[in-house]
């Protein structure tokens, strides 16, 4: 990727009530730099629902329409329809949801909207659990992690749901992964998503959570970078559900990533080997599609 200037305009105010080191705050900053001021955010319940500010404040310079937990994609469908009927085809409608609102409770509405090929961007900032309610497991929680509902010896054994593949199976116009540790890549993907207006576009953002992952706040970006460098969270794009582009190839063992986080502190070498095996398998599956 050629280096380029990150847009100087900021659509986030300096104040928000996210935790120190919040990956979701970084993600929003970059997403809006790419999308610009003609953007309306539809926001189901999620950390950002709180972070965006209590009445009468706002943390953003673009409008936010909050909506019920399961309804991010459906409310965006209605808003898009209204804008179209009013002749405003320029404004970008973006649903901005956490992993719970995307992988779990909002998945039906998302699947429905993508099947209808609604003209909108759906961005999921994934912090791999219900962080806003105090770190309960979601279907985006990775194997090996402890959360408040997968505690002690009952740490999560099952894999993380592969949301991008699920959406690729819908033959979605554009789906991509992005990471807060790779801002140029993320901004390019949001710009590309914006330019592919006309169909549904999905961006899955890896957004680290120092609070829930039990790590120091200054590690947020480093951890996000390691997730990509260990191939645990590969950066790639899928167009029309079939044309894959890989943006990065990792070079580090997954234990380098796991060992830095409290949520994985209980894992034995054997457990970490098993997770490495899962990552290798997934990586191999992905490479077959490139």
């Amino acid at each position: 990727m050629k280096p380029f200037d990150i847009p100087q305009n900021d659509y986030m105010y300096s104040g928000h009530v996210g935790c120190p080191g919040c990956g979701a705050a970084i993600a929003m900053k970059f997403a809006l730099k790419a999308l610009g001021e003609k953007t309306i955010i539809v926001m189901p319940a999620c950390c950002w629902g709180v972070m965006s500010g209590s009445h009468p404040q706002t943390a953003l310079k673009v409008p936010i329409l909050h909506t019920a937990f399961a309804s991010g994609a459906a409310a965006a469908s209605g808003l898009r329809a209204a804008l179209d009927m009013r002749g405003d085809t320029e404004t970008t409608v973006m649903t901005w949801a956490g992993d719970g609102g995307t992988f779990d409770i909002g998945f039906q509405a998302l699947s429905g909207a993508v099947e209808r090929n609604e003209d909108f961007i759906y961005a999921c900032y994934d912090n791999e659990a219900y962080m806003n309610t105090g770190v309960q497991r979601s279907s985006a929680t990775p194997a090996g992690a402890r959360t408040t509902t997968t505690p002690g010896k009952d740490w999560k054994r099952t894999r993380k749901k592969n949301i991008v593949e699920a959406l690729a199976a819908h033959r979605i116009t554009y789906a991509a992964t992005a990471s807060i540790a790779f801002p140029e890549d993320m901004i390019l993907k949001f710009k590309k998503a914006k330019s592919l207006k006309g169909g549904s576009r999905f961006i899955h953002i890896f957004a680290s959570c120092p609070t829930g992952w039990r790590m120091p706040s200054e590690m947020s970006v480093k951890i996000a970078r390691l997730a990509v460098r260990t191939n645990l969270f590969p950066l790639y794009e899928v167009e029309e559900g079939v044309r894959y582009t890989l943006n990065y190839t990792g070079d580090r063992p997954v234990k380098d990533y796991l060992k830095l986080q409290g949520r994985f502190a209980h894992l034995t070498d054997q457990d970490m080997d098993a997770i490495q095996k899962m990552v290798d398998e997934d990586w191999k599956q992905l490479q077959k599609k490139i």
Binding site: G49, Q57, V62, P63, I64, H66
Partner: peptide
Amino acid sequence: PCNMGQMS
């Protein structure tokens, strides 16, 4: 730009 339906 307004923050509609926010925390209250």
